[in-house]
Nucleic acid binder design. Structure first.
Length: 248
DNA sequence: ACTCGTGTTAGCTG
DNA sequence: TCAGCTAACACGAG
């Protein structure tokens, strides 16, 4: 279930189908394919080929050859992209491209939280969490009265940080998720950015955010470093765990 | 049986 | 303007 590292994997899945001719599109699920009427995405894409695959935060898009339309995809909380797999039962493939020769690219998403759109608008997104500069990170995370964890989750501030990644980075940086952005020092912000980037890189390498040292221990109780019982609360609308001793 | 959740957005409230 | 809350989605996990 996707955060930035999982979205990057999905982007790489799209790269596997670049250049193949699209011969059919299943866009019948008009909840996932919003705001398009059934057949609208199909009409735009049939006969075309994807030319490139991009990602910003958790948002994906693919451009088509000959400056054709752009296809936007989002995995939501339960979605994944499958390449050349047989169709899923119960119409759990909420959107699919079919290629000449029988291959397909499917958005498999049981909860229907994913999205497929034409000409996606990403203007509301902040810089990608993996590539944000130190100066930009300080400016976007270090101001305001929201709890710092809530700001990390704000895709308009920084794009790509989800609930688990936020807890992991704050724990690694030893910063309380409840601290007001205003109160986080420049030194702490730099540390947070470094730990965030490290957590993303490790997740890429190990196969997902759930492999993080803190995330793996998150529900079990004690802090993996000091053994203190973890605190739990809702912050920024999401269940949050932290070590009350180390993350002051 | 029942609650909760690796996400996003619109709409409302303070 | 900023921040927080809720509903909607539909299913698996605990």
């Amino acid at each position: 279930m996707p955060e930035l590292p999982e979205a990057e994997r999905a982007r790489q899945q799209i790269e596997r189908v670049l250049g193949r001719e699209i011969v059919a599109v299943d866009d019948r699920d008009t909840y996932v394919c919003r705001p398009h009427a059934s057949g609208e995405i199909a009409a735009a894409l049939v006969g075309r080929r994807l030319a490139s695959a991009h990602r910003r935060g958790k948002f994906l898009w693919a451009e088509t050859e000959d400056a054709g339309p752009t296809l936007g995809l989002h995995l939501g909380m339960s979605g994944r992209l499958e390449v050349d797999e047989p169709p899923a039962p119960r119409r759990w493939d909420r959107f699919a491209l079919e290629f000449a020769g029988g291959g397909r690219l499917a958005l498999h998403d049981r909860r229907r939280l994913g999205r497929a759109v034409l000409e996606p608008d990403h203007s509301h997104l902040g810089p990608d969490a993996e590539h944000v500069s130190r100066a930009e990170f300080r400016a976007r995370i270090g101001a305001g009265t929201a709890p710092v964890k809530a700001r990390l989750l704000d895709q308009g501030a920084i794009a790509g940080v989800g609930n688990l990644l936020a807890d992991e980075a704050l724990w690694q940086a030893r910063i309380s998720p409840r601290r007001s952005c205003d109160d986080v020092t420049t030194e702490e912000l730099d540390r947070l950015r470094r730990e965030l980037r490290t957590a993303i890189r490790l997740a890429h390498r190990h196969g997902g955010v759930h492999t993080g040292e803190f995330v793996a221990a998150r529900r079990s109780g004690p802090c993996p470093r000091c053994g203190t019982l973890l605190e739990r609360a809702k912050i920024g609308g999401r269940t949050t765990y932290w070590c009350p001793l180390e993350q002051a």
